[in-house]
Design a binder for these strands. Structure first.
Lengths: 252, 252
DNA sequence: AAGCCCATTTGATCTGCATCAATGCCAAAC
DNA sequence: GTTTGGCATTGATGCAGATCAAATGGGCTT
C-alpha cells in the first residue's frame, strides 16, 4: 500500500486549473511574497498546473530529471537522501508555502527524494520559465534568491543540531520549530498532529526511533508536553526552550 | 595573536586592481564558468575590488550587513555558526574558486562567521550589482542558481554524515572530499596541508578533537594515511573508501 | 638558541545513546 | 468483532565516543 508508482510519467492528477497565487492563503509565505498584483498575475501564468499526491507518493526521486520546483499548497512532505551504502537521511519536512526541489538546480538531476506524508497538493513551477520571469521581474528574482539562501541557513541550523546537541535538545528544537511554523500558518502553536513516524523524526535528528520515543516520554513526565502517538500538545513552551540552554555557568 | 580586529570597517587592504576573472585560473570553478569572453568582461567590471586577509581575520561576522558575496581567490576559510547558548558549529571549509556569503542573502544580515585560516584573498562581488547583471546575462543567472543549489546539496551531504556515520567514516569522508577538491584545483590528491585544527575538524564532523586525533592515528596504523600534525599523505584511497561501506550484509 | 604557548597525542574512565528484545496500541482489512 | 500489521513504548545491556588527565612536540616570539 506504500504507493503505486510511476505508472505514468506525466501523472493524470494534474489539475489544469489556474493555480491562482493571488487567492492562495499561503501567498505571503511563498514565492509571490512582495510582488505587485500584476506581477503575481505573471507568476500565475507560469504556474500552469497543480499536482495532487496521495500519502506515500513520491513527488520526485533521486536522479529524476529536474524540470520544476514545487510550492507546497497543502499537505506535508519529507525529503531524504539515500547513500550508495544504504544509509538514509531525512533532510527536511516541508509544509504549505514551502518550496521543494531546489536540490535539482545544480546538476539538472534531483539529488534527493520528496515524499508526501499525507495527501497533498503542490504547484508546479517550471524552472526555465521561472528563471525567465525572474530576469524580468527583479522582485521575483530577489525573492527567489532569498528563498534559496534561507534554505542554506536552515541547513546550517540542522548541522548545529546534529553536530552539537544531545537527544532531548534535538527533539525540543524540532518541536519548537514545528510549533513556530504551524503558528505562521495560522494553526495552533501548541497542538498538532505529527505526520511523520518516530523513525523519520529520528533520521532527521540523527537518533534512533527508540531514543526519540524515550525523549517524548521524558518530556511528558516533566510536564512539558502531552503526547499520544502522533498527537502532540505542548504544555510549556518556555520549559522546552530551557531544555536548549542547559549548561550556563557564566563566570561573570 | 588570534587577530587584530575591526580597526577599520572598510579595510585598507582592498586592492583596486581589476580582478581579472579572465586571467584567473579558478575561472572554471568559479562564477565565470560557462560565460563568453564578453560576459566575463561584464562580470570583471562588477568585481571592483579584491580584499586580502591575514590568517585569523574575519571576512564577515554574524549579523554584519550583507552587501556582497565573495569568491575565494587564494587561501582557505572556515564558516561557523555560534548559537546563543555558546554552541559553536563549523559549517564548512572554503578554498579557491568557492563562493562565500550566500547565507546573508535571505535576511540581508550574515548568519555565520567567515574566517581566513591562512593568509587569503577574495574577490568582492557586490550582490545588488550581481543580481542586476544576472538579469541581463542569463548564463550568469543560471550559473549562480546552480552554485546556490550545490551548496544546498553539499549541506545535505553533511547532514547525512552527521546524522548517520560513525567517527572513522566521517573522517574518511572528510579526507576524500578534501582530496577531491585539491585535485580539481591541480594540487596533489594524496598529499596536503590541513589548514584547520583538530578542534575545527571535530566541530565540522560533530566529534571531539580527541576523537579526530584517534581516528587519524587509527588510519595511520592501518596504513591508509601518513599524518604528522597538519601534514597528511593519503597512502590508500580505495582503503579509505572502504571505510565508508563497512557493513554490507546483503541477504541476496 | 631558548622559552613559551598551544596543538596534538595518548591513556583511563564514564555515559548517553544504540542495540536487542518484548509488549502494547491503533487503524484498516476481513 | 476479530485479525493483522505497522508503529510506539519500555526495559536491559553494550559500546562508541565524550570526558578527564597528562605528556609530548612544533612553531613563534624574543
Amino acid at each position: 500500500m506504500r504507493e503505486n508508482v510511476k505508472l505514468k510519467l506525466v501523472p493524470l492528477n494534474v489539475s489544469q486549473l489556474k493555480s491562482a497565487c493571488a487567492q492562495c492563503n499561503m501567498r505571503e509565505l511563498c514565492l509571490p511574497f512582495g510582488l505587485s498584483d500584476t506581477e503575481v498575475d505573471h507568476l500565475d501564468n507560469l504556474v500552469g498546473a497543480r499536482r495532487k499526491l496521495k500519502r506515500g507518493q513520491h513527488l520526485y526521486r533521486t536522479a529524476d530529471r529536474f524540470e520544476a520546483i514545487f510550492a507546497v499548497k497543502s499537505g506535508f512532505f519529507k525529503t531524504d537522501v539515500l547513500s550508495e551504502d544504504g544509509r538514509d537521511q531525512v533532510t527536511g519536512f516541508q509544509m504549505a508555502g514551502e518550496i521543494l526541489g531546489m536540490d535539482g538546480i545544480g546538476t539538472d538531476l534531483h539529488s534527493c527524494n520528496a515524499v508526501a506524508l499525507e495527501d497533498s497538493e503542490v504547484c508546479v513551477i517550471p524552472f526555465a520559465e521561472l528563471e525567465s520571469l525572474a530576469s524580468e521581474i527583479r522582485t521575483l528574482q530577489s525573492h527567489f534568491h532569498k528563498v534559496m539562501s534561507r534554505e542554506i541557513v536552515r541547513d546550517h541550523g540542522v548541522m548545529m543540531l546534529l553536530g552539537s546537541m544531545r537527544a532531548e535538545e534535538r527533539l525540543a528544537t524540532f518541536l519548537l520549530n514545528l510549533s513556530q511554523r504551524f503558528t505562521a500558518r495560522g494553526y495552533s502553536p501548541a497542538e498538532f498532529h505529527l505526520r511523520m513516524t518516530r523513525e523519520e523524526i529520528g533520521s532527521y535528528l540523527g537518533l534512533k526511533l527508540e531514543t526519540v520515543s524515550r525523549a517524548f516520554s521524558r518530556f511528558q513526565e516533566d510536564g512539558l508536553i502531552a503526547v499520544q502517538q502522533k498527537h502532540v500538545r505542548i504544555l510549556n513552551i518556555p520549559g522546552l526552550q530551557k531544555v536548549l540552554a542547559p549548561r550556563r555557568n557564566y563566570p561573570g
